[in-house]
Design a protein around this nucleic acid. Structure first.
Lengths: 234, 234
DNA sequence: GCTATCTGATAGTCACACTATCTATGATGG
DNA sequence: CCATCATAGATAGTGTGACTATCAGATAGC
């Protein structure tokens, strides 16, 4: 197909497709003449992947580029590829120490306390991994941010989060193992990591709405209705 | 304290603090003379909240502004406030239908199938909420994206995600109910929603690393069959 | 032949999140 | 009470990211 059809099939504008080609996210079409190129189904698929990662996964074009490079890079052991994919997907975080006067000046991002908590968590759960990995650092940074806004005690419920994460990770991997061909593994992990976050975040909000209704729903009842309706679903 | 100290305490530059004041994220200092203003501990706290939401929660300045408006708005029923806070925090999503030729042109974002799945999920779980809420729509969009990249069967494992989300939401609310004064409720929900996502995402990646090691760790050890030759997505 | 579409390239736009600069003033220490 | 520094408030500028717009020339397909 030509670029116009590719654009129609995916909803991505022609200039944007060209932009992705320039950025290396999408392979160029096969030139059939100096100014005509043919695109295949693989381009449709790749383009959908790109849009999914950007729109739903909230990733930057550059981050998508790195993930795609990993996807296209052959001949690395599966487990390393998976690690790589997960690695690229760790979200943005600031300097984490939030500057200021009350942070120790030791190595690594996040407070010493948070980093220690991450270490013990990994130990206690027997998870194979390092506190210094990107994900571990991201966790330390998040915990540090919680401390800094006065919710250090949140760390107490961390185990529930870890349990939940473990369950989810288990089905993720089972899904991948059962439904996905080996060549598609990395792509699936990338998709699953990015979109899984979005899915879980949405579900968590839905569950919050429900839990908050059960816990606080009756309090405000009499005073102003009509509005509760709206806010609720939200 | 004056602005210089506020800056030092929080690690946020003076111009940036002024910028946040202009944007309405931070109340202005109390003027002690035409060109001097005094800032309090509340400003330190607020500034840390802002940075946490931006750096770790990945929120835009504008989104933080909306959350803060909700925090500062008094006299709404608790349960509505919680809904409101969660509302503002639903992450970005694109048009979701990814354009193209294979989407139904019915109402709402996401495919009809995905929206239906969200509806049945809410029903089955007896969650109080609507599929049309922002979170419900975000979920539908994410599921639609999964479909579009060929992972429609992912919806099969959605219940595990929902279970996990339910557990997490339960402790979230318990934490809030036990540790947080009523005036701080909304702030806590905002923080917990944004940072909780980050915490869970990081934990999920750590759990993935572990699970992937257990599942695939031994494979890549000595072999190289060149099977992974060419990644499929191209 | 005629018109729509295409490639490849350069340049431009727009939003966002800051930064920089400037003026007039006031604070502070010796 | 004077020199030096910090400040408020205002306006303008910067850098990045993600596209868009516009061109020139070259087909494609009727």
């Amino acid at each position: 197909m030509r670029i116009g059809e590719l654009s129609r099939r995916t909803g991505v504008s022609v200039p944007t497709i060209k932009f992705y080609v320039r950025e290396g996210l999408l392979p160029a079409g096969r030139l059939t003449s100096p100014n005509q190129a043919a695109y295949e189904e693989t381009h449709v698929r790749r383009l959908r992947l790109i849009r999914a990662l950007i729109d739903v996964g909230g990733m930057s074009v550059a981050a998508v580029g790195e993930v795609i490079a990993a996807i296209d890079d052959p001949g690395r052991p599966v487990h390393e590829l998976l690690g790589e994919a997960a690695h690229r997907m760790v979200p943005r975080y600031g300097d984490g120490s939030a500057g200021g006067d009350d942070e120790g000046e030791d190595a690594g991002p996040g407070s010493a306390e948070a980093r220690k908590r991450v270490g013990t968590l990994l130990d206690e759960r027997g998870w194979h991994g390092y506190a210094e990995s990107p994900a571990g650092q991201a966790l330390a940074v998040a915990l540090t941010a919680l401390e800094s806004v006065g919710h250090g005690r949140f760390a107490e419920v961390l185990d529930v989060y870890a349990d939940a994460a473990e369950r989810v990770a288990r089905v993720d991997l089972e899904y991948v193992a059962h439904h996905v061909a080996r060549e598609e593994l990395v792509e699936s992990v990338a998709v699953g990591t990015a979109l899984g976050d979005a899915v879980f975040a949405a579900l968590r909000r839905l569950a919050h709405t429900d839990a908050s209704y059960r816990l606080f729903g009756r309090e405000g009842e009499g005073e102003d209705e009509g509005e509760t309706e709206r806010a609720e679903g939200v």
